[in-house]
Structure formats: C-alpha cells, structure tokens
Simulated scan of single mutants.
Amino acid sequence: MTANVLFAGRTDAWPAYQPLLNAEFARLGLDAELRNDFAPEEVDYIVFAPSGPISDFTRFDRLKAVLSLWAGVEKVVPAVPASVPLTRMVDSGLEQGMTEWVVGHTLRYHLGMDAHILGQNGQWEPKAPPLAKDRHVTVLGLGALGTASARALSALGFQVSGWSRSQKEIEGVTCHAGPKGMKDALAQAEIVILLLPDTPATENTLNAETLGWLPKGAKIINPGRGPLIDDDALLAALGSGRIGHATLDVFRVEPLPPEHPFWAHPNVTVTPHIASETRESTAAEVIAGNIRRAEAGEPLLHLVDRSLGY
C-alpha cells in the first residue's frame, strides 16, 4: 500500500526537498507518494516545520507520524497529538554545520583574534595565546549537536567539560550532570557553549547566580536557544567585567529588535541565527529512512520524549 507523505515545510523549500525525498524513496524501495497538497484524510506522514502551513493536526485521522525538519521541537510538541509519534531532525549536515560554527568562534576567543582584527592601531604587541591544552571549555548540553561539538574541541586539544541532565560518557570529555554538576562544569569554563534544548527546566540556565560561577572574564557562545540566558543578568555581568564577551546567535525575540542593547554593546557579537541549519540533502535521507522504518514496523529514530519536551 502506498504511503502518502505530505510536505508541510516552508513553501520555498518544496522545490529543493521534492526531488531529494523522491530520490531517497526510490533508493530505499519505498512505495510512497510525496505531495504538498493532500487532503487531511489521505495523509500517512507529515514532513513538518513550524514555518510551514500546518498548525492544526486534529484533521489528520490516519496520521502515522510527524517528522520534524527542525532539531528544536519545543514549538512542535504542544501541537502534535500525544498519540502520534513525533521525531526531531538529527542529521550529519546539521551536526557538521554546528560543529564548524562552534569551533570557529571558540578558536576566535582562544586565539584572541578580535584584538588583531579590530586593533590595527600601529602598536606592536607580540603576545602569543596559550595552547589549547591550557584552555578550559565547557559545553552545556550533550545531545547530538553538543556531543559533536565537544568531541571536535577535544580533538583540537582543549580541556573540555560537558553538562547534561543525565550522566553521559564521552571519550576526551569530562562529563557532569545534575545541579552540582552544573556548578562544577562552569567553575573552570573560560569559554562556555550553550547547546541545551528550550524547556521550562533550561530557561535562564545562565542567570545572575550561575554567571557568578564562571571565572572572571569568561566568554559565552550561545548557538542553542535564546531563553537559555537571562538577558538582563548577562548585560549586568558584561558591565561589571564578570563576563568578558558573548557571541549570541539565538534570541528570545527574532529577528533581534534594532533597539536591543545587544546590538550596540562593545562586548557582544550578534549573529542572525545562522550557526547551523537543516541541509536538504542529508535531511531527506533521515526523513526517508524513518518512513521506511515505520512502514516496516521498526522503531522510529530520534523519537521525541514528550515528558522531556525534546
């Protein structure tokens, strides 16, 4: 029996995904029809993004699964009925893109590149940076993206610590968990990278108290979620010198309003939510692979845990 797959991502993404998904269906020998205009009662699977046209899933009576094109599913979980399996996007392109961005900005801080890029003032100051082995870096969040980033930084020789809700074991990374683990993870973090999900439990992970656990002058990199940081507490910590600099890719309101103080702050770098994104070619492989699994009665990969929200 043919599986009807409804594409419900952004309209402008359809021309890219249509041939890629159809090619993956054919490669896997999957009997599936892909369209972006099925009637709700005809749909077996929805390839979904919150930026797409669907917000009401109650009309889809025979829905077998919703397959998100986004790694973050906090906006999707409340909308999808609990009886319908929901998967999040975990793909190699997304991981590689995030790892490259994280490593790039970590090296920027580690090497002190801003002083030379922005400080062409005619003064010769030959001060070399320390080696990576003498620099402590902490990654908060050890899911797929956090783990990939932590491993890459460890491979470069950094002293890498990580924190997650539950205990993890990652070669080359000192892993912490739980409330006490958070304090231990931050205590030596000269550079801290946030890659946690956005849940009620993670909101304001960096706040007035936890920012105080960091070494004076620590640098912050946030490509995860805007609500992970208390903006007012961060601005206060930057003003006092407790935090040396912050590179922020995600915000509570996006686009970041022109009047927001982050834009003009001398110790904040704003990037417009470009740390990484879903790549169509690798995402198509993940989506098609999961539909094949569902049709074969196999467990779906990257299934969202509704109790945790991710």
Rank of each mutant, 00 (worst) to 15 (best):
E24S: 11
F38K: 12
L211P: 10
P261D: 03
C175E: 07
M113V: 15
R10C: 13
Q159P: 10
Q120V: 04
D249S: 07
H110L: 12
L142E: 00
A144I: 03
V286N: 04
A148C: 08
F7C: 02
P197V: 08
L195D: 01
H245A: 15
G178D: 06
N207H: 07
R10P: 04
L131W: 04
V173Q: 03
A288T: 08
G141V: 07
G104L: 13
A236Q: 11
L303N: 09
R252H: 14
T147K: 12
G52I: 04
K75R: 14
E169W: 01
A71G: 13
S154M: 04
T87A: 13
Q120N: 08
L238S: 00
P223D: 12
N204D: 15
P272D: 00
P266G: 00
Y17W: 03
H116M: 13
D249M: 02
R279Y: 13
L211R: 11
L228T: 13
S161M: 13
L131K: 07
K183F: 02
L153G: 10
E171W: 10
G181A: 07
K219V: 02
A201F: 08
A275S: 15
S240G: 05
K168V: 10
V270I: 10
H176W: 09
A71Q: 02
A148F: 03
V77H: 10
V137F: 07
N22D: 15
E277F: 09
A233W: 05
G29H: 08
E74H: 15
G289D: 13
M1F: 13
P272M: 00
V103W: 06
V270N: 03
H302C: 09
E209P: 06
I193W: 01
L63H: 11
